[in-house]
Simulated scan of single mutants.
Amino acid sequence: MLSELQQRNLAVVFGLVDANRDGLLTSADLDVFVGRLIDRLDLQPTSPALEYLLVAFAQWWRQICVQAGVDTRGAVTLAQYVDGVDRGLREDPDFLVEVGVLVDVLYADAVRPPDTVLGLAGMVAVCDAFGLPEPVAATLFEQLDEDGDGKVGQPEVRAAVRRVFLG
């Protein structure tokens, strides 16, 4: 059973992806959401990150639909999404693999050479792509930067995303 914190976290994720704010997730919502990410992250058509992002989101959508018991052309309510995540976490040890792939792609795109880790500017860019304002990005960055060195490594970001789902 998901904790109250996990349920709130999942509601935030659902709200970010529900592009038309109708309380249902559809492939059209996901297309709009992914399009926003592509635009805000300035991913070029020839970018390998773009292909990985599209494949990862398509796999994530299929996973959501399977767990919710709906066809990929259907719609998923918040309750179905939360119940599906709960079931997936309990029944499938690989349930968060697709989420991990998304995190890795976004992290790799946000870290620009010569940097090798995520700085505040990269966090602001990623949060902006999700429609989150700069103050939220700064707060998230502070929470992720546990040692206060102004840098966040990929393992720290993956662990934080896992905490969203696992509480």
Rank of each mutant, 00 (worst) to 15 (best):
W60C: 10
L50N: 04
V164I: 12
L140G: 11
V97G: 02
D42V: 11
T139R: 13
R73F: 13
V157Q: 01
L106A: 06
C127I: 09
R87A: 15
V13S: 05
V12H: 04
G15C: 10
V17H: 06
N9Q: 00
P155R: 00
L144F: 11
V55H: 10
V152I: 04
L41E: 02
V124F: 00
L89R: 13
G119K: 13
R87D: 13
A58P: 04
A137I: 03
I38T: 14
G69V: 01
F95Q: 10
A79S: 14
A110N: 08
Q154M: 09
Q63D: 15
E91R: 09
E51N: 14
G148W: 00
E98T: 10
P135W: 02
V82G: 01
E4N: 10
L37G: 12
L102K: 13
E146L: 15
E134T: 12
V161I: 13
A160S: 15
M1C: 10
P93I: 05
V111S: 05
A49P: 00
E134P: 05
W61T: 09
L41W: 01
G23Y: 07
Y107A: 08
Y52T: 11
N20H: 05
P155D: 05
D83A: 15
T46W: 07
A160Y: 14
L102H: 11
D31Y: 01
A19F: 09
L24E: 01
A160D: 11
R158L: 14
A79D: 14
D145R: 00
R8L: 02
R112F: 04
L140Y: 03
L53C: 13
Q44C: 05
V101P: 01
V13Y: 02
Q63P: 01
P48Q: 01
D104F: 09
E156M: 02
P45C: 03
G119M: 08
T46I: 03
G88P: 06
R62Y: 14
A138R: 13
R40F: 10
A110F: 07
G119R: 14
V164P: 00
V124K: 00
S47G: 01
N9L: 00
G150L: 12
A11P: 00
A19Y: 06
S3P: 02
C127V: 06
Q80A: 15
A129D: 07
V164A: 03
G84E: 10
L166Q: 10
F141W: 07
L37K: 07
V97E: 10
E4C: 09
R62Q: 15
N20K: 04
A28M: 09
A129H: 06
E91G: 06
D42G: 11
W60E: 15
